[in-house]
Design a protein around this nucleic acid. Structure first.
Lengths: 148, 148
DNA sequence: ATTCTTGCAAAAGATTTGCAGGATG
DNA sequence: CATCCTGCAAATCTTTTGCAAGAAT
């Protein structure tokens, strides 16, 4: 998503629900659009500080809550602190290295399989599927092997 | 797992790693063995209070951290507060109702499939797979239908 | 102009930590 | 009896909230 379309999307999403377009919201949005990873509230703040005038912590939280409500972002609680990323409706799952905390995005249609399987249950209608795999990335795994 | 075997397992796990068997650890363990759901630290405390002398909050946290380190329990962060349950190496995934917060445990070997698929990647060795599905349970889904 | 948002500071809630006394091996 | 654990209270950290001033429509 390029900057122009990102801005238009934010604008439309906000206005169509009667919300105002403010600097805080644009800044947070820009950071999320530019991020290749999920970011914590602090991570977002840090990346905004690098720019011009700072945005207050609480404004970031309020903005993220609003974005989530509008379906623009998704909140994860993979770790002790919450993180956010742009919403994307794909089959990505997260592979988290237990040693170095590297996060790999991995696409697999097993998520779709799982969704299909769940949809056949009469007692639960799935909406959101979140898969987190903990393990060891290539680097950390090979370090462990050398020590053995 | 009956009470006898549960006690023996805890005893062995602790002693084999040089840790002592204390009342706090037994109490927390008993609660977890008897629980049919994941419990928060507070939930564990509440269930202990019902018994005899109370156990301190911080002891519960320290105990849970130790249990997790020994692989006896698994910590989840499905919600804003962490919850714990006995470790069980099965294919259970969690179905969480977005409306009433009901949690359904669902067994599916798609988790094993996913593990197998991941093990073929050269760059990541999976250890733990955690699947959380948000959606609507039968009850809440039918309420939504009636309103439409 | 009106009402929505922000910044600030304080509050709230969960989890962690230091330390002295008590329990365990 | 030497050391590990616990309880207590205070600290820490993330997230939330009230309120007056500032910005957007």
């Amino acid at each position: 998503m390029d900057a122009y379309h990102a801005a238009v999307e934010l604008d439309a999403a906000l206005r169509s629900h009667g919300h105002r377009v403010t600097r805080a919201r644009r800044e947070v949005w820009d950071v999320l659009v530019g991020a290749d990873e999920h970011l914590s509230a602090q991570g977002i703040l840090d990346r905004i500080d690098g720019g011009d005038a700072p945005i207050n912590e609480s404004s970031v939280y309020r903005t993220l809550a609003l974005f989530a409500e509008l379906g623009l972002v998704r909140e994860s609680r993979l770790d002790e602190t919450a993180t956010w990323e742009l919403f994307h409706d794909d089959a990505a799952i997260h592979l988290v290295c237990a040693d170095c905390a590297l996060v790999i995005h991995h696409d697999t249609d097993l998520v779709h399989d799982l969704r299909r399987a769940l949809e056949q249950r009469s007692d639960f209608s799935p909406v959101d599927i979140d898969v987190r795999v903990t393990g060891r990335c290539h680097n950390c795994a090979s370090v462990g092997t050398q020590m053995a």
